[in-house]
Structure formats: C-alpha cells, structure tokens
Design a protein around this nucleic acid. Structure first.
Lengths: 200, 200
DNA sequence: AGATAGTTATGACAATTGTCATCTGCATAA
DNA sequence: TTATGCAGATGACAATTGTCATAACTATCT
C-alpha cells in the first residue's frame, strides 16, 4: 500500500484528487494539507511514502517545503503538481531533487501511474518541461529580485529605499539594471516578464 | 438522470471532477470542454441539463459563454465554478442570471448536491459571496478600463495614445482619473487593484 | 435656447522613473 | 601587496508619469 499526502490549497481539486486516488487499490491518502506549513508538519509526523505538493500555497510554497524536507533528512518522495511550467520553478524543483514535476494540465488518468513509477525509483516529469524550458535561467540576482518584487507591489523607489535601507539612487540603479537584463522598457513590462517566467 | 457538461481548461481538475460526478448514480457527464468556444458548441448540440463553467478559459470566458447562451435561448442551466471571488465577475454572472456560482475553494462533497439543488430550481451561491462583495461595483468606465489594460501590458502613455488615436495628454488624464477612483498612488498599484477585483 | 454632461484636448508643473558615468569601501584571490 | 570585483552611493540628465485647471465640442434633456 502506497501512503500518500496531498498538499493543495484549492479545496475542490484537493478533495477530488484524494477521492480519485483512494479509488486505487494500492494507494491510500493518509493526509491532506491546505498550506505549506501544514504539509511540512503532516509529512514529518505521518511519514507518507509520497507527497503531492502544489507550488503556490499560502504560508510556504511547495518548493519551500521540498527544500526543508531535504534539510531535515525526510525520506518522503516529493511530486510537485502545479499549474506553472515556469522555468524558474522547474529549475528550483530539479535542484531540490524532486522525484516528479507534473502539470495540472496533464491527464488525470496518469496520476496514479506516475505515483507508482515514482515508488519504483523513476523520475516523472511532464513532457512539456523536458525540452526547452530548462536552459532559461533567472538573470536577476537576489537584490534585483527583491527590489522588483517590492516595485511589483506598487512601492515607489523612495519607499523601497527606506524599506531596504538603501539609498534612493541605488534602488533606481538596481531597477534599471534589472530592466536591462530583462530587456524590458519600463517597470511594468519588467514585472510582467519576470512574473511570467517565475523569476519573481 | 441529470446530464451535465464540464468546461474547465485545467485538465487534471476537469478529469477529476468528471470522474467524481460520474460516480453519482443520478448524474452523467455527457461532455467535457477545455475552452469557451468548445463549451458553447457542445452545449448547443448536446443540450445538457446543467453545465459547469470555469471563468478564465482560453478563447472565450465562462461569462462570455453564459451571456451567449441567453442570447440563443438555451435552456441549459449554468453553474459557474471559479477560483475567483472577484466582485466584477460575480456581478456579471448574477446579471446573466446563472443558477450557481461556486468557488473552487469550496468542498468537493457538496458539488453533486449543488447540482441536484440547481435542477430543482434553487440558486446555489458560495457562502463567501453572499455578503459584502456585491455592492463593490466597477468604478472605471470603458475608456479607463481600456487604457489601464494597455498600461498593464507595459505600454507607455505615448504608445497608448497612438494605439487609441487619442492625444498624449488625454491618455494621461484618463490614467490619472482611474488612479484617483481606485485610490492608487501609481500605475502599478492601480493595475494590481483593478485586476484583483476583476475590473481589469 | 439654455443647461447639463460626456469626451477629448492643452498647457503647466512637480514628482518619479530610467540611464549613465563615476566613486567609495571592502573582501578576496593572485 | 597589488589587483580585481562586488555592493552601494552620488550626481546629472532626459523622459515619463501624475495632477490640475481650463476649454472646445458634441449630444441630450428641459
């Protein structure tokens, strides 16, 4: 019997997947979580064989959870299940050594089979992701990401400077540099592009 | 036997819901669509009793489909099933006289029951939506929406002016007016707020 | 005809943004 | 020790953005 845990904030999908997987003879859903924090604590207490993690969840993302599972030496295998084929997400997941990265756009029917294959030691990656997407890595460094994120919340250069204790000019330099790297002609375009690639 | 059609672009959820509903004795999933266009044509040919429509789908949104169903005098009952509790969406759905507006954050278990209740003539609205959200109507007029949308794509005031054949100053007046109505302190904040409310 | 409202335009102003060259410390590698 | 590179900072400039007062031109209603 394969014991699995599902972490997904959208209740309808979580419930449907749990029901669907429980119909399989060899799979048992032992727990459900609606945010990353809950997922982490349930995984450590329940020690399921496999966990299905959404990425964009409240409190902690699925990627955060994955990285922390490694730190504490958990043996639970991780399958990321997300809407987003964003290069940044995929890259981070692969670096965290997940056993699977599936898209919510993929077929329902193969989910159970993917779980079984992961249990046998295979890596399950949605075919859309195997080619192309990986080589596009995030050109922004930590500061640029940080500053662009704040800008994306509508903060002005001045506000950002006082939040981060940097000078006004420095903030603008970082934004300018980020826009240059992204080949965007203004903040708004830059934010759109970075968000769309998962570079935040 | 209640004949239903599911229109939802996320394949995993669509498949899971179909499977789940097919398990009910009195419900039969007669069709599935992955975009609004397909939904519309399947509904007209299959004439299901109820259709479950996602809002944000390719080609046509679920709201577009609903409005067109009214125009052609379809008797299929509509249940909107969406992630978004955005006032703008909800308002438009109610005006189009949908029989149900459920959130994907709601419980899986009650979906089948909601469908049965809709068949009996009830209106099914997610409880989160009943209070508060309705009175917040879109303060932006058509021009303001149009211009803010273009701005959201990263266009400058100058570009927008030549796209819409308006003067540079006029475009900036509209943006200024929109930001004022939204109580936002710059474009980026205004865009975020408007998008979040479904006012686009 | 006069009042009213909606759409578009203009000009002026200040604030913010985007760009660039240059400069300072500081750490670290050769 | 010198060199190199990085994180920040500064100043200057032009372009863009946000705000406001005002006006012209419709169309509509009374």
């Amino acid at each position: 019997m394969i014991r699995i845990l599902i972490a997904e904030d959208q209740r309808m999908l979580r419930g449907a997947l749990a029901l669907l997987l429980d119909l399989e003879d060899d799979i048992e859903v032992v727990g459900q979580a609606c945010d990353g924090q809950e997922a982490l604590s349930l995984i450590t207490t329940l020690q399921p064989d496999v966990c299905l993690l959404d990425i964009e969840m409240p409190v902690k993302t699925g990627l955060d959870v994955t990285e922390q599972l490694i730190e504490i030496g958990s043996i639970t295998r991780v399958i990321i299940l997300t809407t987003f084929a964003r290069p940044g997400y995929f890259e981070r997941a692969i670096k965290a050594n997940v056993q699977g990265y599936l898209l919510k756009d993929g077929p329902t029917e193969q989910l159970a089979e993917s779980i079984r294959r992961v249990m046998k030691g295979h890596r399950e990656i949605s075919p859309e992701l195997i080619f192309g997407t990986f080589k596009e890595e995030n050109p922004l460094n930590a500061r640029e990401r940080e500053i662009l994120s704040l800008s994306a919340q509508g903060k002005s250069a001045n506000e950002i400077s006082s939040i981060l204790h940097l000078s006004y000019g420095t903030v603008r330099n970082y934004i300018s540099e980020a826009l240059n790297k992204l080949d965007a002609k203004n903040r708004i375009e830059g934010i759109r592009m970075a968000e769309q690639k998962g570079w935040l």
